[in-house]
C-alpha cells in the first residue's frame, strides 16, 4: 500500500531507534561479544604465536583479520537472541498487527547489528593497537576494509535472523554462531594453510573465511589485493542473498 511505503523510513527509524536503545542499555552484551575474540587474540599472540611460522614479523597483524570474523560471528548471535525474545514475548505479534511496513521489523534489528559490531570491532582494534598492531594502510584501503567488514556483518546478521525467527528455545537461537566462530580456525586466519594436511588444506583454501581474511590482511599491510577479493565478495553476496531469502520465508511462514 502507498501509505505503508510513505511511512517506510519513519517506521524503520522507530524500529532502529528501539534496537539501538537495547544495545546501549545492555553494554554487557558488547563486552561479552568482544571478550572471546580478545581472549583468542591474547592466546594466539602470547602463547601459540612464538611457535607459529606465519612468515610475518608482526603476528598481531597476521591474526587480526581472523579475530574480526570471530567477533562478528559472536556479535551477530545477539541479533538472533533479540529477535527470538521479540517473538517469544509477543511484541513481534503486536508490531505485526499494526499498520507498519513488515520488513522494517527485521531491518531495524539488522541495521542495529551493524552499529553493535562496529563498536565491538573498534574495541578490538584498540586492544590490538596496545598489543603492537600497526598498519601501513592509507585511507582508501581502510575504507575498503570497513566496507568488506560491513558486508560480512550484514551477511552473518541475515543468517542470524533465521534462527531468531524459527528457534524453539533461547539456546537454539544462539547455537548457530558456534560453527561460524569455529570456521576461522580451519582457514588461513591463524596459521598458513600450507602447513595443513591435503584434505584440510583443500577445505581451508576454498572456504569463504580464507578469501576474506587474505583480502583484509593484504589491505591492512598496504599491499595490492589479489583476485581473492572477488571470491570474498562473491561468497558474501551469495550467502547474503540466500540468507535474506530464507529469512523472509521464515517470517512469512509465521502467518501461514
Amino acid at each position: 500500500m502507498a501509505t505503508l511505503q510513505r511511512y517506510f523510513f519513519s517506521d524503520l527509524g522507530v524500529m532502529l531507534g528501539r534496537s539501538l536503545r537495547h544495545i546501549f542499555r545492555s553494554m554487557d552484551t558488547i563486552i561479552t561479544a568482544t571478550i572471546t575474540p580478545i581472549g583468542l587474540m591474547l592466546l594466539f599472540v602470547y602463547v601459540f604465536g612464538g611457535a607459529i611460522q606465519s612468515g610475518t614479523a608482526n603476528y598481531v597483524n597476521y591474526v587480526l583479520p581472523g579475530i574480526f570474523l570471530v567477533a562478528i560471528a559472536s556479535g551477530t548471535s545477539y541479533t538472533s537472541l533479540r529477535l527470538f525474545t521479540d517473538v517469544q514475548r509477543g511484541i513481534m505479534d503486536r508490531f505485526r498487527s499494526m499498520p507498519i511496513a513488515p520488513s522494517t521489523l527485521l531491518w531495524g534489528h539488522v541495521l542495529a547489528s551493524l552499529v553493535f559490531n562496529g563498536i565491538s570491532l573498534l574495541i578490538i582494534v584498540l586492544v590490538a593497537l596496545l598489543m603492537g598492531f600497526r598498519s601501513a594502510a592509507g585511507i582508501l584501503p581502510w575504507l575498503a576494509i570497513v566496507g568488506l567488514l560491513a558486508l560480512v556483518t550484514l551477511t552473518l546478521t541475515w543468517v542470524a535472523v533465521i534462527p531468531g525467527l524459527t528457534a524453539r528455545s533461547i539456546d537454539g537461537a544462539a547455537v548457530f554462531a558456534y560453527p561460524l566462530i569455529f570456521l576461522p580456525f580451519i582457514s588461513s586466519a591463524f596459521v598458513p594453510t600450507r602447513s595443513m594436511p591435503p584434505v584440510v588444506r583443500a577445505f581451508a583454501e576454498h572456504q569463504p573465511v580464507t578469501a576474506i581474511v587474505n583480502t583484509i590482511r593484504a589491505l591492512l599491510a598496504g599491499e595490492p589485493v589479489s583476485q581473492e577479493i572477488w571470491i570474498a565478495l562473491a561468497w558474501c553476496l551469495g550467502i547474503l542473498l540466500l540468507a535474506f531469502f530464507f529469512a523472509r520465508m521464515a517470517y512469512k511462514k509465521r502467518t501461514a
Partner: peptide
C-alpha cells in the same frame, strides 16, 4: 490493521524501554 489493536496473552511490552518510551514508540508507529 488500521482498525484494530491486539493485546496478546502475555504482556507484549519492551522490557528494556521505560513505560513512556514504550507508549511513544507505539504512537510513532
Amino acid at each position: 490493521r488500521h482498525s484494530i489493536s491486539l493485546t496478546g496473552q502475555f504482556a507484549a511490552v519492551d522490557e528494556l524501554l521505560t513505560g513512556r518510551e514504550n507508549l511513544i514508540m507505539i504512537a510513532q508507529l
